[in-house]
Amino acid sequence: MTEIIVIAETKDGIISPVTSELVSAAIVLGGNPTVIVPGVNDTAATSGAAISGVSKVIACVGEQFSNYDAAAWASAIDACAPAGVIICAATQNGKDLGSRLAARRAVSVVQDVVAIDGGVLTSPIYSGKAMQNVSLQGDAVVSIRANTFSPSSDGGNAEISVMNQSADLKTAVREMIAKASERLDVAEADIIISGGRGMQDPANFAHLERVADTLGAAVGASRAAVDAWEDISHGMQVGQTGKTVNPSLYIAVGISGAIQHLAGMRTSKYIVAINKDAEAPIFQHADYGIVATWQDALPILESELKALLG
């Protein structure tokens, strides 16, 4: 049987929760995986071994893992990973690394998988306006979107082996320029509240930020808002030419629901739309639609959430 290898997603030397979802995906695809945990030391490997369903853990250790360098990471991880189907997280770095691992092994890569059923892998194409269903014929690399599989529980006790694997860096970080704002990135958030042109002025995004702070949510924006106002950065844009998101809850405020925007957020688990235009297309995609101006709705939303969540 084909071996399944999961590349653990790590952040600041700690295994990210999505790794447990990748283990679940591996089991659906065909077996208990070997989990490779990259790091400057083997500390994070312990939490990899604790995920139930893992057959073994390989801590891939080297100085190159202090910063993401595509070539060095791919070379070191490839040396640690046995032949088989490799599973990565469909994050920015996970997809990049997966592409390199596939190229290194001269196999194909299937990105952004959102379902696996009977050996058929489903990924959105045309930004989710259609789905592509493929089957693998041999080894491949597969990246899985977050929130696709329930995380495998804790309670595992897999054996850990350590492989020291150094690799030459091809890029050099010269300076880290800290983010101006401490706001959560829409690509990482489990709850997103986004504003569109209906917010009328970029200053009014402060109302969205207050709701976001109550919820621990990220603030996003439509392309129309990003194009219209310099203060609304491209990094906030949700949509086909912005970020594709898959949160548990997406709240669209003053967003009409252009096909471009829908393409970036339609897979959200729950969608709430607040818009004064009862005919806005966004309402066709919302689980809960509220026909109201943001001026009327947001203060009530904020106070209700504060009462509920403190």
Partner: peptide, 16 residues
């Protein structure tokens, strides 16, 4: 690319 959205080609070509 706006069709597949895969982001595979750039890093894959570099690796090869």
């Amino acid at each position: 690319a706006a069709d597949t959205g895969a982001s595979s080609t750039g890093p894959g070509v570099a690796e090869r």
